[in-house]
Design a binder for these strands. Sequence first.
DNA 1: TAGATTGTTAATCGATTAACAATC
DNA 2: TAGATTGTTAATCGATTAACAATC
Lengths: 215, 215
Amino acid sequence: MEIATGIRKKYPVPMIRRLPSYLRIIKSYSYGGIEYISATDIANELGYDSVKVRKDLALTGVCGKPRMGYKVDELIRAIRSIVGWDKNSEAVLVGTGCLGSALLGFTGFSRRGINFAAAFDVDPHKIGMTVHGHTVMPMRGMKNFITERKIEIAVLTVPADAAQETVDILVDAGIKGIWNFSPAILKVPARVVTQNENLMSGLAVFMVKMATESV
Amino acid sequence: MEIATGIRKKYPVPMIRRLPSYLRIIKSYSYGGIEYISATDIANELGYDSVKVRKDLALTGVCGKPRMGYKVDELIRAIRSIVGWDKNSEAVLVGTGCLGSALLGFTGFSRRGINFAAAFDVDPHKIGMTVHGHTVMPMRGMKNFITERKIEIAVLTVPADAAQETVDILVDAGIKGIWNFSPAILKVPARVVTQNENLMSGLAVFMVKMATESV
DNA sequence: TAGATTGTTAATCGATTAACAATC
DNA sequence: TAGATTGTTAATCGATTAACAATC
């Protein structure tokens, strides 16, 4: 069950993207006091093919029992371990605009082990304000804060034209990963992980679907 | 150049997801007064393989000139047409929590032809409040509003446990597509398009990347 | 012309789906 | 036992990448 020391499995990205949905359903079974869940159960809830789910679950390393399914709490533990939601890490949020504020107020992060240690903004008017319990701090102090507290994760919600200069500071401060909500493509050294969330990609797919559907 | 009547091309989803990034770069060339852009230019900006970009651009129907590249304004027009950002449509937003409010304040939608005709919420305390210029209206009036104004698009930012009941009202009102930001999987008739944005999928991929990188 | 670029055809890669044996 | 389910192996599908001819 535990991850072999040194060796780390390579999980397919599409599978990783599905894990949170699986987890959500498995947890609802857990809350309902149900001990076992089958790949078919999950597939039905999500409208997926059950073979796909079974293959994904196989990759988690959890073994199922024929006729029974998979042990709910084993799956929960395994998935949370893969996606790193079983341990706490501190993060900074940079850019307290609409989206940044929304993310600060989102309770889902702390439940997944991501805690905002600080929020930063350039706007002098925002400094000192409290956004969902987090005091906005001046960008000036960001580098030292990150370095001293050894923060590894930054959530980037600044406008596109401020993205790269902000990233340079983050990288300089020793950040390990940047979750980027700006549309800008970031230039970072190879050791720094970036993950781009592009809201507009989703909108594009949605609009194309709508157009094709209505033929 | 124009879309053949009746026949509509089927675009690959990964290609559609890349179009907004392409558009952003091409537009920056346009603002800079540059008339032509090559697939290599775009690929370099985004860190993509240039062949992939060229193939995507071929699918838009725009022809490039060897040694010159593609005409910037032709590409802009073609991409905007494919993703439906060249015409206006009205939308309602349901659920004015953190994320809903953030989306209401996001100027990018109107620039892409999506205009919020109204925002709805169940919370009586929120009714009448103005969020980024939009007055919050009671859920009670939503069905009639959508039907009368012939609104086709709904942006769903309600909590997971309220999602399905809200969707039932939307479907009943004749909505054509639902852009779903709740983690719930929606049950809708086949004629209704849904597009799920799952923030947690992105977080999962990010965390796995971080873990694999730091080996 | 030389060289940069487009555009097409073939090869590779990876994910999904199908088929089926194994298990309780 | 019968039947539902797991898990594995093979087949299919689609996207990316490679190779190369065509163009200006």
